[in-house]
């Protein structure tokens, strides 16, 4: 071994530094390309939407076209009911499937479920609408809030199942072994040790999936359909925010265009606020887990 100092070629070093800076520059550009349109959309929806928002918009039924006035109270309630029911069906099934795939899925059934979840998570949302139409709307002979909820649940379940599975897999094996070594069977180990430790990421998956279905329009067009009045029951058609946005935005009436902006703002606000609430509730638990 020689003891000479390693000599750095100054030209090559210079070149490497330039390449390094160029690479960081490209990454910043890519970031800008991703963020600028997003901020733009958010800004437009917030500015134009908030300008058209009113108390009447939140509390009243739609008014007649060209006159202006009235509101989307029925659509806001309709969206809450349809998305709420989809979650009621989707959270247990999605989380349950995720638990199966992660904890018990080292077999043919598990592999099949994983494959199907990934396929289902990628299908066009209108296909989910067609399925719910065929299963429920045709059978019942009418559009209904329930069929809309089923269509959204079909989209919701695979996303939650996959994120739950991934969240559980991040929990180290030694946590499971600690529980087994205390003479605990698999079920309590999964429910009391693994799932609580993974809850933060499971929650994130549920929030992302909820945000996605809250904005879905296509699957609701021929399931929940629409309604100018209050929904009369879960087996009756209902207005929802995204379908209303679609209907109002393509209408020829300028005052309806304004209301479509306001509707977009309300939808965005509901998603953001529920996200913030869930995160805040979770943050205390997360601090506890970090030992703070």
């Amino acid at each position: 071994m020689s003891t000479e100092t390693f000599v750095v070629n100054p030209v090559r070093l210079r070149l490497r530094m330039v390449r390094d800076h160029a690479m960081v520059g490209l990454c910043v550009l890519a970031l800008a390309a991703a963020v600028v349109p997003l901020v733009w959309i958010l800004w437009d929806v917030m500015a134009i939407g908030a300008a058209n928002l009113s108390w009447a918009f939140l509390t009243e039924l739609p008014g007649p076209p060209t006159v202006g006035g009235g509101g989307w109270a029925n659509a806001i309630v309709g969206s809450a009911v349809v998305v709420g029911m989809a979650m009621l069906m989707g959270v247990p099934v999605g989380v349950g499937a995720g638990i199966y795939m992660s904890e018990y899925g080292d077999n043919v059934l598990g592999r099949a479920t994983r494959f199907l979840s990934e396929v289902l998570a990628g299908i066009p949302s209108i296909v989910a609408g067609v399925v719910a139409y065929g299963l429920i709307v045709v059978t019942m002979g009418r559009f209904s809030a329930m069929s809309g909820a089923v269509a959204l649940a079909i989209l919701f379940i695979p996303v939650v199942a996959i994120t739950t599975q991934e969240a559980l897999r991040l929990i180290p094996r030694d946590q499971r072994e600690a529980s087994f070594a205390l003479g605990m069977a698999e079920a309590p180990t999964t429910l009391r040790v693994v799932l609580p430790a993974a809850m933060g990421n499971v929650l994130t998956g549920v929030m992302i999936a909820t945000a996605r279905i809250a904005g879905e329009t296509a699957p609701l067009l021929f399931t929940a359909f629409n309604n100018r009045f209050w929904m009369e029951g879960l087996d009756q058609p209902t207005a929802t925010i995204p379908v209303n946005i679609y209907a109002y935005a393509i209408s020829p009436f300028p005052e309806w265009h304004d209301q479509a902006w306001a509707g977009a703002f309300v939808l965005l606000a509901i998603v953001l606020v529920s996200n913030v609430i869930a995160r805040t509730l979770w943050a205390r638990r997360a601090r506890f887990m970090r030992g703070e």
Binding site: A178, M184, A185, R285
Partner: peptide, 19 residues
């Protein structure tokens, strides 16, 4: 499951339940 209530185990890395 019964066996492991009679034969307990302590692991190399401390693994308390963080939740």
């Amino acid at each position: 499951v019964e066996l492991r209530t009679r034969v307990g185990m302590v692991f190399q890395r401390p693994n308390p339940f963080p939740t």
